[in-house]
């Protein structure tokens, strides 16, 4: 079943066009990986899905992106409510300079999800458990989040993202700043999470895409070259460029 349907998306930074006519169908409760050489527009596309491009003043998005028949690329859309449903994890772990508890409680607080202290404790605990961080931090919830190791920080950011029970989580190269062990933990986590949420992950590592995703899209120079089941993209792509990229001839 399709969760997000993008049609003919064009993105401009000032006068420079960054995405050309991208159309893609993202299926529900699956992991969709976006791969491609750096600067190919995969992160730009990802940021269209929760309107993070609004933050960049000169950025302009054209085309239609629908999530459950809700038009995302519309002036009238309330981005605050959209972002409650579509969470995001960034390339560099960016916990707030607050306690671990406050980091996770941030979303539920602003969106008024928890009605009482007990409920909030419960949400924080479940989120941290789902992010596989609970056992490491349960005794020091009031320590500052920035004091954790890189991998822990990133899992804290994932816990923060899932604390508001989003329908979609966007991940922008979530493991690029982490060591292999932490990466493996995150990948395991992604596998667990996809039972409940739709995940779109941008990655520069093809092996990661192959390991975690069901569908893969290949971007090059702002265009979506090929999109299909991960197995097919990696074993038998239709497009020559995809083939060249997969086999490491460029990128």
């Amino acid at each position: 079943m399709s969760k997000i349907k993008a049609e003919n998306v064009n993105v401009y930074y000032g006068s420079k066009q960054a995405l050309f006519d991208v159309s893609i169908d993202i299926a529900e409760k699956e992991v969709t990986a976006l791969i491609g050489p750096s600067g190919c527009g995969k992160s730009t596309f990802l940021r269209c899905l929760n309107r993070m491009n609004d933050v960049i003043e000169i950025c302009r998005v054209e085309g239609s992106i629908k999530m459950d028949n809700l038009e995302l690329n519309s002036r009238k859309l309330d981005v605050v409510r959209l972002r409650e449903k579509v969470g995001m994890v960034f390339q560099k772990p960016n916990p707030f300079p607050k306690t671990i508890y406050e980091n996770v409680a941030y979303g539920p607080t602003i969106h008024g999800i928890a009605q009482s202290k007990e409920e909030m404790d419960q949400i924080v605990e479940t989120s941290l458990k789902k992010a596989a961080l609970w056992n490491e931090v349960k005794d020091r919830l009031d320590e500052i989040g920035t004091g954790l190791s890189g991998g822990q920080q990133q899992r804290l950011c994932i816990a923060r993202a899932i604390s508001v029970s989003p329908e979609v989580i966007l991940m922008d190269e979530p493991c690029s700043a982490l060591d292999p062990i932490a990466t493996a933990q995150i990948e395991e986590l992604i596998d667990d999470l996809k039972k409940e949420v739709t995940i779109v992950i941008v990655t520069h590592s093809m092996s990661q895409a192959a390991r975690v995703s069901q569908k893969t899209g290949f971007f090059h120079l702002g265009k979506l070259i090929e999109f299909g089941p991960t197995d097919k993209i990696f074993k038998n792509p239709d497009n020559q460029q995809t083939q060249d990229y997969i086999t490491g001839r460029f990128g």
Binding site: R81, H111, G112
Partner: peptide, 12 residues
Amino acid sequence: NYKKNLLKKRYN
């Protein structure tokens, strides 16, 4: 309703 009110408050 609760969330609707909250949202309104937040925007205010």
